[in-house]
């Protein structure tokens, strides 16, 4: 359970520095505690020894993409149930279905609306 005094911890995974900066500003200004990784591989390594409440990931990334990240997290004991939202410019149904099959919790198409995004974050952690 999250009270006012314990901010929701979010990990954002995106290889674009500009997108990371945008997400950091949007989420910290709305009271979230934000950690950031540059690709799926870095996220996987960080998550091996850290916990968050919810993960937001891009799809197209070097080394390990968003699909691969979700698949690997779903097989780990620590993160099998972790809410994972995909935030992407991809609009194809095929990619969306792939994310769903991999175990994603939700799908958000960029450009994102910060209020809709934060509402979704609060919804999926409960």
């Amino acid at each position: 359970m999250h009270t006012q005094s314990t901010p929701i911890r979010v990990l954002t995974v995106d290889d674009s520095a500009s997108m990371r900066a945008l997400l950091l500003g949007a989420l910290t200004s709305r009271g979230f505690a934000v950690e950031q990784c540059e690709d799926g591989q870095e996220a996987l390594e960080w998550l091996a020894s850290n916990e968050v409440d919810v993960i937001i990931t891009d799809i197209n990334m070097p080394r390990l993409d968003g699909f691969g990240l979700i698949e690997k997290l779903r097989t780990s004991a620590l993160h099998a149930e972790r809410p994972i939202l995909v935030l992407t410019t991809e609009s194809s149904d095929e990619k969306k279905q792939r994310a769903r099959n991999a175990g994603a919790t939700g799908w958000i198409v960029k450009p994102f609306d910060a209020d809709k995004l934060t509402a979704a974050l609060r919804r999926v952690i409960h």
Binding site: L85, K96, R100, A104, T105, G106, W107, I108, V109, K110, P111, F112, D113, K116, L117, A119, A120, R123, V124
Partner: peptide, 12 residues
């Protein structure tokens, strides 16, 4: 600003 169709949140 992006229209409502964009930024839509779909929870599975």
């Amino acid at each position: 600003r992006p229209q409502s169709a964009l930024g839509t949140v779909e929870l599975f």
